[in-house]
Amino acid sequence: MATERVSHGLHGKVAVIEIGDGTRRNALGARDWHVLAGLVAWLPTEPGVAAIVVRGRGDTFSAGSDMNDWVDASFEGVEQTFRDMETCFQAIERSSVPVIAAVEDIAAGAGCQLALACDLVVLSEAARIGMPVARFGIQASEAFVARVSRRAGKAMAADLYLTGRLLTAEEAVNVGLVTRVVPAGTAFATATTIATQIAAAPEGAISAAKRALSQVEPARVAAGADAATTAGPTVAYNDFVEAIRDFLSSRRPT
C-alpha cells in the first residue's frame, strides 16, 4: 500500500508515514490522497501499532496538492480531488490511534490541512504554515475552515483565509495552531519521541482521551459526516484554471 509519494515503515509501536518524493515541496497527487487515507485506516489494525507519525520526505513537509494534476483538468475532476482530500483528512481525524505531524519548512494549503487533521503538530522553528488558497480561486469549505478555527479561533481563521499569509512557527504556537515548536531539523525526532511515549501508555486510556477530546471540539467535523456532506472546497473554475497556469509558468514559491 504505497505510491512513489506515500510510503510507510514500522518502528516498534510507532508507524511512520512519509509523504512526497522530495521534489515540488512534497506536493501530492490525486492517487496519493487515496493511499494515505487507506494507510491511516489500516495501520492501527496491525498488531502493536499504537501511534502514527506523518512526515515529509527530505527537509520539508508538504505544500499541498500537485498543481500539475490540475492542468487541463475538468471542473468535476478538480471537485473529486478535493473530496478525496477531505476523505483523507477525516480518516486521520477518526484514526483509532493518535496521529502526529512532524512539520519542517512548510505546510501550506492541503499540506496545512493534513497537519491540522492530526492530533498533535510538531513544527520546526524555521517552518511556516497557512492556507494561501484564495488566490487560486479555491473557495474554502466548512471543514477546511473548521480545522483552523477549532485550534486558533475564528479571528485567526479569517486572517489566514482572507490574507493567505503563512504564519511563522512562533506565531503558530502562540495562537494554538500547533502543539509545539522545536529547533530546525528536529521535528521528526521530537514527534517520534512523543509517539513512543504515547505508545507506552495503556491503550484504553489513550482511546478514552481521544474520544473525550472529540467531544469538546465543537468545530470539529461531526463524526459520521463524509467528504460529500462536509463539502470539500469548490473552485471558481475559470479563475482557478488561470491561476494554476500562471503559477506553473512562473514557478513562484508557494
Rank of each mutant, 00 (worst) to 15 (best):
L28K: 00
A219T: 14
T87I: 01
F61K: 13
A15K: 06
G185R: 03
A172H: 02
S65W: 00
L116E: 14
A209L: 12
A227C: 11
L116P: 12
I106K: 05
A225L: 12
R252W: 00
V216A: 03
D69A: 08
A228Y: 01
H8G: 00
L43R: 10
T186W: 07
H11Y: 15
L160C: 11
A108T: 13
V78P: 04
A169P: 01
Q90F: 15
N68R: 14
G109W: 01
G130E: 12
A41S: 11
E18Y: 00
E93P: 14
W70E: 15
W70L: 15
P98F: 03
D72S: 11
I198N: 10
Y237M: 04
S65P: 00
L10R: 13
A15R: 07
R55P: 06
A27N: 07
A30K: 07
A127K: 10
M156Q: 15
A146K: 06
F247H: 14
T163P: 10
V181S: 09
G153F: 02
A209P: 00
E4R: 03
L213M: 12
A63F: 08
A91Q: 12
R165Q: 07
A184L: 03
A37G: 12
L123P: 02
A201N: 04
V14L: 13
R251P: 00
N68P: 01
M67F: 14
R220E: 09
D119M: 09
V241Y: 00
D226M: 13
P183Y: 08
A102D: 05
V241T: 09
R150W: 11
G58D: 05
A231E: 13
P132R: 08
M131P: 05
